[in-house]
């Protein structure tokens, strides 16, 4: 799946878009199975950019196209299918059900697919060193722990793209490396593409290209 931005201007940023951007009010493409880093300081619309791709917001002028089809043309059920099979996401604000346990949060996602995911969930939890937390309620976890649960949740599903919105913001270097390794192997396994937004410090993946917002 190719993702294209064509002369997109987000309504909240109209008039304050910097001249150095490669994405807003430009034409840019994200090619299938490539790895991209989108760098910008705070307030330049990193999350907005991710949400535009994922179909959560449409407050822009210009065109966002997924495989040549304008994103605003998809129906609710088509978005559900895209989110189930084509695009996975780790939100910057994680978006877990705080009253559910860590394991249940992952299962809410895996319940959408046939088969038993217990082994895979435990293997990934092992890799990220959160096995002992699986049966704790999400609201009792630290932000870094929640971040790792959200990463596991995003890796359960099939995808052609994975969108990571500042995925390591609350992880130390060791944990960041472990998470990056896990994500890297999942992306390889699926021959998928990857878009990471960051403030600029991270260099966990072998990026094919970098964009400035």
């Amino acid at each position: 799946m190719t993702i294209e931005f064509n002369n997109v201007t987000p309504a909240p940023l109209a008039g304050v878009i910097s001249s150095t951007t490669d994405i807003w009010q430009c034409t840019c493409a994200f090619e299938a199975a490539k790895r991209y880093r989108v760098v910008a300081p705070s307030g330049k619309g990193k999350s907005t950019f991710i949400h535009y791709i994922y179909g959560l917001r449409f407050d822009f002028t210009g065109k966002v196209r997924l495989n040549g089809v304008e994103s605003s043309h998809f129906h609710a059920n088509e978005w559900a299918e895209i989110r189930q099979d084509k695009i996975s996401i780790v939100y910057q604000d994680l978006r877990l059900f705080l009253q559910l346990t860590a394991l249940q949060n992952i299962q809410v996602k895996s319940a959408l697919y046939p088969g038993n995911f217990d082994d895979r969930i435990h293997a990934m939890a092992e890799a990220l060193q959160v096995s002992h937390l699986l049966n704790n309620k999400a609201h009792t976890l630290s932000y870094g722990e929640r971040q790792r649960i959200a990463i596991i949740r995003s890796l359960i599903q099939p995808f052609e793209w994975i969108l990571l919105d500042e995925p390591f913001s609350h992880l130390d270097l060791e944990n960041s490396k472990r998470a990056a390794t896990l994500i890297d192997s999942a992306v390889r396994e699926r021959n998928a593409g990857l878009i990471v937004t960051s403030l600029g410090q991270d260099n966990q993946f072998n990026y094919d290209k970098e964009y400035q917002l």
């Binding site: 994922y54 959560l56 609710a76 059920n77 559900a80 299918e81 989110r83 189930q84 996401i89 978006r95 059900f97 809410v108 996602k109 959408l112 599903q157």
Partner: peptide
């Protein structure tokens, strides 16, 4: 909020 998050995870409206 719960409905919204479930939709974001790929659950269908129906």
């Amino acid at each position: 909020d719960e409905v919204s998050l479930l939709l974001q995870l790929g659950y269908k409206t129906t």
